[in-house]
Write a protein that binds this DNA or RNA. Structure first.
Length: 112
DNA sequence: GCAATGACGCTCT
DNA sequence: CAGAGCGCCATTG
């Protein structure tokens, strides 16, 4: 049916949330990777924007999403960054002395 | 409808 | 390896 017309404001968000939800524990994905899997390759900012608007109450492992540098992006509140790191470490993700994650080892492969 | 903002990525230095 | 600049599109005011 023509339900496609009434696409909610956060229609694109659902696409991103679906991809982030697919990230397995102990694995991390970059915004660019999420964007590509969500069909928004080249627009990693929308991924961050979507997660920023991510309403609590939704089981989305947002903490498994980091930037291409392997570091945790800083938001308005720095404490969140510490929480994200704690969640990742709890899943087995290792951080180096510089607080960076080894993407070569923890990067999630959507293919399998 | 226009202007500004934003959890980024890539390239160059 | 680290830092800075530019580009991208969607959402918000």
């Amino acid at each position: 049916m023509s339900g496609s017309a009434a696409r909610p404001r956060a229609a694109s968000y659902e696409r991103i949330y679906a991809v982030v939800k697919r990230i397995p524990p102990g694995r991390v994905a970059t915004y660019g990777q999420i964007a590509a899997l969500a069909g928004r390759a080249g627009q990693p900012r929308q991924v961050g924007y979507a997660l920023h608007a991510l309403p609590e109450g939704r089981p989305i492992p947002w903490h498994r999403v980091i930037n291409a540098k392997g570091t945790i992006s800083q938001r308005g509140e720095r404490w969140v960054e510490k929480v994200q790191r704690a969640l990742l470490e709890r899943e087995g993700v290792a951080f180096d002395a510089k607080g960076r994650i080894d993407l070569r080892r923890h990067r999630w492969r959507a293919s399998g």
